[in-house]
Structures are given as C-alpha cells and as structure tokens.
C-alpha cells in the first residue's frame, strides 16, 4: 500500500544531521512506493533542500521564520502542523534526537495519534509495517505496529542505513509561509559544552572512560584517541559521579544509549546499568587492568592492562595507520 510519508530534517552546526538521512530511508520503507516529503524548518535553512533530494526525498517543503532560529516546541509545532495540514501525510518520521523527542509527542497529541519512539528497524511483514524498538534501555526489544490513525515514529540515530547519495536525483522545493507566534518558552541563551561536530548518539566511534581514568585530566588520552578515530568521548556513571566529566557524557540505563560501530571501554568495570547503554554496539573493545572485570564478558577484544599505557599506544598505532592510508 503506497503511503505519503513526511520526514523532518534537522540542521545542527550548519549541516544536516545524519539521522535526517536515516529518517528518509525509513520513510522510503514505510512509503512502499509512495512519496517521501521532507520538511526543512528553521531560520535560513533553504540551502540544505537539494541535499535532502540527493538523499532520497521526493520533495522538500521549507518553512523559514526568524522565530525558528532556536528550537521551541511551540514554534516548531506550528511550522510542522502547517506542513502536515497541507500535505496530509499518512506517516511521519522524525529523528529520535533532543528535538525529535521533545516535539513528536506534542504533534502526536495535536493529531490524536499514537507514536512509536526510538525505532531501530522498520520492515514490511505480511502487509504490516513493523517497528522494532529497545525497551528496558536495550536489555530487550519489542516489535510494534500502529493500529489506529497516522503512523508516527522517531528513529534512533545510527541504526537505519541511509540511502546512497545521488546527485542526479531531482525534486521540487517549495516554501510554505507560516506565522510563528505566541512562543510560551523562549531560549535566552545556548551554552555550548560539547565539542563541535561529533554527537555522542551519532558517533561511529566512542572512547569511554570510567572510574579507572582517575581524574578529569585522565580523560586527555581518551580524547586524543577519539580525535584520531573521528569519534566522541563518553563515560560511565562512575566517572561522572566522581566529577571527572559532565553527566551529559554518561552512557547507560540512566544516560545515553549508544550503538556505534566501535566502542572502546577504558577503566570501566561493566556494571549492568552501563552495559544496557552500550552492549548493542557493533564491536566492543575493553581495556581494564582487572582480568575478572565484567566488561570482558561483552567485549569482542580485550586488553588486560593499564589504560594509561594502552590508550596512548593505541593512539600512536591509529595515527600510523592514517598516514599509510
């Protein structure tokens, strides 16, 4: 059954986020041959429209307004609601990002709809579109279907493969004028605390430190390794509680759930709450001086040793590799 599917494209630091391309790919599966329309919302974002077409969208609807410079649920829901009213999609796909998480339930209420959040796989099974999502922070999974109303989902970054970029694709780009007003919450200031670029949930490589890192200073070698690999730094709650790093880096059941291609755990014991957040990574490397540490039970490769010796050596070795390739 062909469906018209709407996706939301997100711009961060002046570029489209990968998860927006993954959302288009998910939308294609759901569309079953129907049209995929991408909504591009913000203040001066039009320039990104063609890229969305190259990534698989059939059409782009742009909503620009000065009041959309910062994300607010009021502003963005007004913009999206206008696009939805105009397009009348049968399904909607957002990224499961800070923005997507905040905005999707509000729109779901406006549409009197259900919402399947944090989807990691989409498939067509016997005429149904079936969504897989983690529950218990990844300790288990459930498969869900939408039984009534519009099919509204958010997709977790890094799990659904985006489509091949194709510059020969073309499609229309249209602007929709929407008045964005009466914002009840206003962003006064954005305090940048993360490094420019790689977001933890979207990173392909994560180098994570635990209490074994021993100090804030101790994270330095991990940062260097992450940099060489183009990855991000994460942490266990042990490290956050000890004040070595910010809670926003925490991975686990009460932190971020991540699924990078490569997860390097340094000085992390592997408590069940930590494993919940990272054990669905593709490849796990553990570096720990205790051969009995639980983390080795989930690691594909383990080195028993002092992280302050192993990590800098690893950085050197990867640097050499980079020079050669």
């Amino acid at each position: 059954m062909a469906r018209k599917v709407l996706t939301l494209a997100e711009v961060r630091d002046g570029s489209l986020r990968n998860v927006s391309f993954e959302a288009i790919a998910a939308a294609k599966t759901i569309a079953e041959g129907g049209e995929v329309v991408a909504a591009l919302v913000g203040d001066q974002v039009q320039a990104h429209a063609n890229e969305l077409i190259f990534r698989g969208a059939d059409r782009v609807v742009v909503v620009e307004h000065p009041n959309l410079k910062f994300y607010t649920s009021d502003g963005y829901s007004q913009a999206l609601k206008a696009v939805i009213d105009k397009e009348q999609p049968e399904a909607i796909v957002f990224g499961h990002t800070a923005l997507g998480k905040d905005l999707s339930p509000k729109l779901a209420v406006k549409l009197d709809a259900g919402l399947v959040s944090d989807v990691v796989a989409v498939e067509e099974v016997g005429g149904n579109i079936v969504f897989t999502r983690p529950i218990y922070s990844g300790k288990a999974f459930e498969k869900k279907i939408v039984t009534d109303g519009i099919m509204f989902v958010t997709v977790r970054p890094n799990n659904i493969a985006s489509l091949e970029r194709d510059e020969s694709r073309s499609g229309s780009v249209e602007s929709l004028a929407v008045e964005i007003k009466d914002l009840r919450a206003i962003v006064k200031e954005v305090v940048r605390k993360t490094a420019e670029g790689v977001d933890l949930t979207e990173a392909k490589v994560i180098v994570a430190g635990g209490r074994g890192v021993k100090s804030a200073e101790g994270f330095k070698p991990l940062q260097e390794l992450a940099e060489v690999l183009g990855g991000a730094v994460g942490a266990s709650r042990g490290a956050c509680d000890a004040g070595y790093c910010d809670y926003s880096l925490q991975i686990g059941q009460t932190g971020k759930v991540v699924t990078p291609d490569l997860y390097i755990a340094c000085g992390i014991s592997g408590a069940i709450q930590h494993l919940a957040g990272m054990s669905n990574s593709k490849v796990i490397v553990a570096i720990n001086k205790d051969p009995e540490a639980n983390i080795f039970k989930v690691a594909d490769y383990g080195i028993v040793g002092d992280l302050f010796e192993v990590v800098p050596l690893l950085t050197e070795e990867f640097k050499k590799l980079k020079v050669h390739s």
Binding site: R184, A185, V187, K188, V191, R192, D199, L200, S248
Partner: peptide, 9 residues
Amino acid sequence: EGDEEVIET
C-alpha cells in the same frame, strides 16, 4: 545533547 539552553517561561 550535552549543551545547555537557558529558557524563560
């Protein structure tokens, strides 16, 4: 996602 927004409401 690790950054801070100060919001008035």
